[in-house]
């Protein structure tokens, strides 16, 4: 390795579940067409981890996503917010309706193609889980396909490019949360925890960060120039093993969770209504402390 680090960040577009943006039909099902797509919120931490690595050690970060052509906007967002160098979108009809397994197979093929045609990869970053599926499986399954080590729930990390080692602090949840420090050889898959916080305590790092921001502004304005789209033929994938056909997961039914009935009642009383106010005091008296 030449002291610079090559990273690929896996990211996904998800429905914007924020208040006002999300749209449900009468049965309570998500109306995908009416709800805008945004970057999966947890991917932000993966991207921040990749950016921190690039700022500290130099190198190159590619964003990668599988989804419809519209997901290019998610990759563009990644370029704007965390300065990825280029974007790879895995997209065609055969890939539609993939579950985590079919997605992982597709991502593995894309990463292998990337290594053959673009560059050797040192680190693959992925978010903790997606806001729509919430399974947290795609990252580990992709890793299994690559046959690389994986470090999950990463809170902080540093790379020793000369030794080819990653050191990470990871959260171990239990009765008492613990933070353990681990080492792993590169290449490696890193799943960033939502509590991951990039740290830039060196002036040189902050200056690099600022320089990247300036450079990226120009690049993001011209995102299509930096976008590569691969379909299932480019990835040499058999349609039987990808997309809906390659997805063993069967969603049998989606049941809306009924809203709990409200137990509260409100009665409006005019403060000048003496009898009404008197009644309130009588009712509240039982709850008052003291005698």
């Amino acid at each position: 390795m030449e002291g610079i680090v090559r990273s690929v960040v896996l990211t996904k577009g998800v429905p914007d579940f924020s208040e006002g943006a999300v749209s449900f039909n009468e049965e309570g099902h998500l109306e995908r067409g009416k709800t805008p797509t945004v970057m999966n919120p947890n991917d932000e931490f993966a991207l921040q981890a990749a950016l921190q690595t690039k700022v500290r050690h130099g190198g190159h970060v590619s964003g990668m996503s599988m989804g419809p052509p519209g997901y290019a906007s998610v990759l563009e967002e990644a370029m704007e917010s965390v300065y990825t160098d280029d974007s790879y979108l895995l997209s065609d009809r055969e890939l539609a309706a993939s579950d985590t397994w079919a997605t992982a197979i597709t991502l593995c093929s894309a990463l292998e193609k990337y290594q053959e045609e673009v560059a050797d990869v040192d680190l693959v970053f992925a978010g903790f889980k997606t806001a729509d599926g919430e399974t947290g499986q795609t990252g580990p399954q992709t890793c299994w396909g690559l046959d690389w080590p994986i470090v999950t729930h990463v809170l902080a990390l540093d790379i020793d490019p000369d030794e080819g080692i990653l050191r990470a602090k990871r959260l171990v949840e239990g009765d008492v949360d613990e933070i353990e420090t681990v080492e792993a050889p590169l290449p490696c898959v890193v799943i960033a925890d939502p509590e991951f916080e990039p740290t830039y305590r060196k002036a040189t790092h902050r200056l690099t960060h600022k320089q990247l921001r300036g450079e990226t502004r120009e690049r993001a304005a011209d995102h299509e120039e930096y976008l590569t789209t691969w379909d299932h033929q480019d990835l040499n994938l058999d349609p039987d093993y990808i997309g809906l056909d390659g997805s063993p997961t069967i969603v049998s039914a989606v049941d809306p969770i009924p809203k709990a009935p409200s137990e509260r009642e409100a009665t409006m009383v005019d403060p000048s209504d003496e009898d009404g106010m008197e009644k309130i005091f009588d009712e509240m008296h039982a709850f008052a402390g003291g005698d």
Partner: peptide
């Protein structure tokens, strides 16, 4: 939670 990284 952070790592210092030696430069300089």
């Amino acid at each position: 939670r952070g790592f210092g990284s030696a430069t300089g």
